[in-house]
Design a protein around this nucleic acid. Structure first.
Lengths: 121, 121
DNA sequence: TTATCATGTGAACAGATGCTCATATATTCA
DNA sequence: TGAATATATGAGCATCTGTTCACATGATAA
């Protein structure tokens, strides 16, 4: 068991077969950052949410457009947008009764570009 | 409804409030690629799998080391490694009874780097 | 062979997830 | 004010996920 549970540390493995452990120990990743990274990937790890992010990467769209685009209910889109909003991946502007959503994080586009490269290899 | 369900196409939204739809239509993303991208992000969207990938990014490790590292059973790690193997994100080499796992996709490191940047802003 | 260690696999279960439906809120217009 | 439109929210539910447990497989050494 690692002494410090907040830090990912490779020093306390039960069976150590080579010295790879000490080699990796220098690059510890705080537990909180690991969880935030996982949360980001999880948000992008749903086909419909990814479609939303992909669409918003080309320009702002309102909820009902996104719903027609994904062929799901506007309620479903709204639920997904709330999650993306809470993670600050998207934001919106109001124009009368209509909310236009847009990407709010420049990393999202970069992540999608790399993932697309990955699938095309 | 889009006529071609294999293609993400923005031309058939029910309510069109501006001309953003036509602007986005040029960048259609095939359904299959969208799903593969989502699968990649989903694989990285679990805290334990991300820890595995993070650890392997610093060098190869065997299953029991990873289990001690994550503080879960070796069976759990094995299940997760199978998923990562099937997605070809990791591969292994055998040294006697021990299997050493390593990253098998150069995009993974890039994705983790960007995600880490994201969490640190 | 037999014992042992490292890993893989299937079943089973608790918890998470994503959708729909019904309803609430908010804005605009008559 | 009341009606209509756009979006948000909560409940409920079927499905998916990640873990543990028990056991199987595969390699090594005695």
């Amino acid at each position: 068991m690692p002494q410090n549970k907040d830090m990912i540390d490779l020093c306390d493995c039960r069976c150590i077969h080579e010295n790879r452990v000490t080699a990796a120990a220098g690059e510890a990743l705080p537990e909180q950052e690991n969880q935030q990274m996982a949360q980001l990937f999880k948000a992008m790890g749903d086909a419909n949410r990814l479609k939303i992010l992909w669409a918003l990467n080309h320009g702002e769209m309102c909820v009902c457009d996104l719903a027609a685009f994904l062929q799901v209910s506007e309620s479903a889109v709204s639920h997904q947008l709330r999650m993306l909003r809470q993670l600050q991946l998207v934001s919106n502007r109001r124009a009368g009764p209509i909310l236009y959503y847009r990407l709010n994080d420049h990393h999202v586009a970069a992540l999608m570009r790399i993932a697309l490269e990955h699938t095309r290899e």
